[in-house]
């Protein structure tokens, strides 16, 4: 446990030192406040629209930004150590591969968690203080749900980045593959799903279709933050499939947790087989 914390602590202090943590937090805060203030601009006025609309807009933006940040933060976790020659050295220390990997995960995970908490937390507090007629209770609940799901989504992509990082032997390759993952989950997956729907002309089992959304953590994340507002929530595109899902919010949370547990376990298994 001590070794895991030693590794995590170095990652945390690295991200404080290179100002990643503060930069991410700042980006989140500015985005959240910007969306909160100008979210209603389309309807011709500036000001706070409503909590569900704000969270929905934030979540739509989050699915682009969170995976990208998480992948950038973590893609060189192992391959970077190898290029610097420190991976070989670390493995001669009383430190197992699992301890190294989970220590990295703890460090990167906490970095992202703190940045999210600070960035969106500050924005939430600012909205609560500055907007006159906002229901603070509902806002706090929605913000809390949004922040926790954002952290889980980020962890998922950190874990996916590790799968790459333990597998390849050059940093640029890892960076390219990380971008590929982002591209796939954020841009291509929904298109593919829509394409499949149209091409199958209704022959696909309609029971099965909503479950396909579970194959993409960003879709789970969006569903969680939009569906939570119940009736009246506007689901567009492939997300409308999610309305038919029989698993409810708890199931979505569970799926999002699985989305970081499974890749990190996979990365661990691959790392144990890696030749050093």
């Amino acid at each position: 446990m001590n070794s895991i914390w030693t590794i995590a602590r170095k990652e945390l202090s690295d991200s404080l030192r290179n100002r990643w943590l503060i930069a991410i937090a700042l980006v989140f805060a500015v985005l959240a406040l910007g969306i909160a203030w100008f979210g209603a601009a389309a309807s011709g006025q500036v000001g706070y629209a409503s909590t569900p609309a704000t969270i929905a807009s934030l979540a739509s933006l989050g699915i682009f930004l969170i995976p990208l940040i998480a992948l950038l933060l973590a893609y060189d976790a192992i391959v970077g150590e190898e290029e610097g020659g420190t991976l070989l050295l670390l493995m001669t220390y009383p430190l197992s591969r699992g301890q190294l990997l989970f220590g990295k995960f703890l460090g990167h995970g906490l970095t992202l968690a703190f940045a999210t908490l600070i960035g969106f937390g500050v924005a939430g507090v600012a909205i609560a203080l500055l907007v006159d007629d906002v229901a603070v209770g509902a806002l706090a609940a929605a913000m809390f749900r949004f922040i926790v799901s954002t952290i889980l989504l980020g962890w998922g992509f950190i874990a996916l980045a590790y799968v790459i990082s333990v597998r390849v032997s050059e940093k640029p390759v890892a960076a390219g593959l990380a971008l590929g993952i982002w591209f796939f989950f954020v841009l291509i997956f929904d298109l593919m799903l829509l394409g499949t729907l149209v091409a199958s002309e209704g022959k696909l089992n309609p029971e099965l279709l909503p479950w396909l959304l579970m194959l993409n953590p960003t879709d789970i994340y969006r569903l969680l933050n939009i569906v939570a507002f119940g009736e009246g929530a506007q689901l567009s595109g492939v997300l409308s499939l999610g309305a038919d899902l029989p698993i409810g919010a708890a199931g979505l949370w569970f799926a999002l947790v699985l989305w970081f547990v499974i890749p990190i376990t996979g990365a661990w298994a691959l790392f144990r087989r890696r030749r050093i």
């Binding site: 020659g85 420190t86 001669t92």
Partner: peptide
């Protein structure tokens, strides 16, 4: 065991 590998860059920052 103490080990000095042939080429270590360490952490430049």
């Amino acid at each position: 065991i103490g080990y000095l590998p042939e080429n270590v860059m360490f952490y430049p920052q």
